[in-house]
Amino acid sequence: MKKIFYPVLLLALTACKGNQQTTDTESVTVPVSEVAADTTAQPEVDAITSATSKPNQVSFNGRIVLPPQRQATIALTMGGVVKNTSLLPGQYVSKNAVIATLENPEFITLQQTYLDSHAQTEYLQAEFERQKNLSAEQAASQKKYQQSKADYLSMKSRQDAAAAQLSLLGISPETLLKDGIQPLLEVRTPISGYAANVAMNVGKYINPGEALCEIIDKSTPILCLTTYEKDLADMQTGSPVQFRVNGMGKQTFHGTVVSIGQKVDETNRSLEVYASIKETNPQFRPGMYVTAHIQKH
């Protein structure tokens, strides 16, 4: 009896164990159709930016910038020592406002050159007209007529050159004739806006062409977004844009694509896309980072 009992018991235990494994396997089996459904429900992931987006949107990073005509670097063709300035970074200034005065003896010499050449030009012009009339009546030699003409034109070109240099410094020749020589060169703003990168102080010598400061006009900022080659097929000017600004919570702003870069960066294969901003906000600052979604077409 023992020789028959043990094999039967071993067979029963093996059968029970097999049933248990089958049960465990069936309890973790998931239909293939359900797995496929879960996979297609996931959002798209950008392999380069690691950003996710909906199937009909593309997500990009970027920053707020200003159009070139909305920012100005103030520099002069003539250097000098800063005599006076009250400009502070972040201060708002109006167009044509005086933000500093410079002291330079060459500025005084340039004004004197213009005034002298202007006076000489008037005299030589009158002499040229007199010799011209005499020459027409054959009462004077052609040599005197030609000499008077040369003297007049030479002095007039000297006057025009001095006037052009004064205009580059923002000085009107008519104002100089009216008010006389000014001892200090006034630095004026070409646009209205906020002062930034102020690099001057009283007593500092400013070289010709050196920037004194920048003026930024924040009234019409734009977006500069970084995109990639693979996104160009679904992008065009006029595409709607939604974006959020770092530091401003979940507030959403809107814009429109206005320009798409035509040159791809050789290092990271990216290019820049510019978008206008519909809503204006006083908290916008050039350089602030944004996350944007561009609607596909």
Rank of each mutant, 00 (worst) to 15 (best):
S86L: 01
H254A: 02
K17R: 11
V257R: 03
R269H: 13
S117C: 06
L13I: 02
Q146H: 11
V45A: 10
P7D: 02
R269F: 03
A15R: 13
C213D: 14
G247Q: 04
Y205Q: 12
A161P: 09
F128S: 07
A140H: 01
T267C: 09
T113K: 05
P282E: 15
T52S: 14
S276Y: 09
T109R: 04
L212V: 09
N84M: 11
L212E: 10
T189M: 03
L169A: 15
H297L: 09
Q112A: 06
H297T: 07
K204A: 04
Q57G: 01
A37W: 02
F243C: 02
R244W: 06
M78F: 14
S270Y: 04
I222W: 15
Y194D: 15
K250I: 08
I216R: 11
S148N: 13
E106P: 09
A163M: 03
F284K: 03
A140T: 12
E174A: 14
T291G: 05
Q111N: 15
A162Y: 09
T280S: 08
G193P: 00
D217S: 06
E272A: 05
S53N: 04
G18K: 12
M155S: 13
E122T: 14
I294Q: 07
Q42M: 09
F60K: 00
E44S: 04
T22V: 03
V28G: 08
F243M: 04
F5P: 01
K230V: 07
R63I: 08
I191Q: 04
R269Q: 14
L88P: 13
N96W: 02
